[in-house]
Computed example of a mutant assay.
Amino acid sequence: MSRTGGLTGARNRLMGELKALRKEKWIHFSDHEDDNINILRWQFALMVINSDSVFNGGYFKAEMTFSEEYPYQPPKFRFLVPFTHPNIYPDGQLCISILHKPGEDIMSGEMASERWTPLQCAESVLRSVLLLLDDPEINSPANVDASVMYRDRRNEYNEKARATVERSKKDIPPEFEMPRSFETAPPPKHEDDADFWAESDEEFDFGGSDTGDDQDMEEYEDEEGEEELDSDEE
């Protein structure tokens, strides 16, 4: 594959991934026009929509950058406003296995299946980031102090997380409404459902007998009798 072909393939794939991600509730691109975005550098906000999460309600501005070798090489991810978390470096860079180069790493103990592969995509990275927020890897932390706090002083850690959420809300655009749930509203229930089914029983015949059916049966039996008499006479 030529270098030009590789560039075209990366950009085409990223355009498709970007289009799909715009439909998700948990990510917000402030620029809704694909023509105006640098396809190799995305800026957006990740939103935590999980009532069980200590980061619930957070609006975390972030950035992903892609190389010309994507998807054969992983993207890079960082939070634009760093916060206290065992796996977030002071500059906002994230320490997570899925962003590490393909192949097994004996030194770190990471298996190839835990690291980046061309079968991964931007969405799988972002979903992994959201999972990592609530389930940090404290054995190989990027922030040792945060790791110790999470392990030994969980209440203090949770208080910092809630403060981070409140601070992040200042970055929510004025015209944007934060989603509160992944679920869409159920369709309205008809108040006259019982009346509907009662009317259906009267209007539709599902095989029950009536006067017309009895009359048809009598005519059919008379015709059979006449045919038997004709047969006897012959």
Rank of each mutant, 00 (worst) to 15 (best):
A62S: 11
E177K: 13
V144A: 15
S108Q: 02
F196M: 11
M111R: 15
F77W: 05
I27K: 02
V165N: 01
A122T: 12
E159Y: 13
S140A: 13
I138S: 09
D192Q: 11
S231E: 15
V54K: 04
S128P: 02
I138Q: 03
Q93V: 03
D232C: 05
T84W: 09
A185V: 11
T184L: 12
N56P: 01
Q73T: 15
L119S: 10
G57K: 01
V81P: 00
M111K: 14
F66A: 01
P141D: 01
G92L: 09
L126E: 00
N139M: 07
F83R: 03
S231Q: 14
H28V: 07
N87A: 06
F79Q: 01
E68G: 08
D216V: 14
R78M: 05
N155P: 00
M64E: 03
L80T: 05
D31F: 07
A10S: 15
P71S: 06
D230N: 08
F204H: 06
E199Q: 13
G16C: 06
P141G: 09
T211V: 11
L99C: 06
H32K: 14
S181T: 15
E33K: 12
P82H: 02
L119M: 14
L99N: 04
T117Y: 03
E63W: 01
L130A: 01
E224K: 13
K169N: 04
W197Y: 14
D222K: 09
S2Y: 09
S53Y: 10
Y72T: 01
Y89I: 04
M64L: 13
N50W: 06
Y89N: 06
E221N: 04
G6C: 08
A198P: 02
M15Y: 10
W116I: 02
A10G: 04
H85E: 07
A45Q: 00
N158H: 08
D213T: 13
E224Q: 09
D222V: 10
P179V: 06
M1L: 14
L133A: 03
L132W: 01
S147R: 05
R180I: 07
K23N: 06
G5H: 08
E234S: 11
E63A: 03
E123D: 10
L80G: 02
A122L: 02
F66G: 01
S168F: 00
T65C: 10
M149R: 03
N143C: 04
A163K: 11
E166M: 14
E219Y: 13
S113E: 15
N158W: 05
D210N: 15
E63M: 10
S53K: 03
E24D: 08
D193K: 11
I39T: 07
R154C: 08
T117W: 05
S147G: 10
P90K: 14
E202S: 12
V81H: 04
L229H: 12
S231H: 08
K61E: 00
P71Q: 12
A194M: 04
D201Q: 13
A10R: 00
I96L: 15
L14I: 07
H100P: 01
M178W: 00
D222G: 07
D34Y: 09
A45K: 00
S200Q: 14
D135K: 10
E223T: 09
P118Q: 08
Y59N: 01
Q120A: 06
D222L: 11
F66C: 02
K189C: 05
E218R: 11
E219M: 14
L14Y: 03
E234F: 10
R11A: 09
E17F: 05
Y220T: 08
E227C: 09
E233R: 11
V48F: 06
A194E: 10
V148S: 03
R154M: 07
E137S: 07
W116A: 02
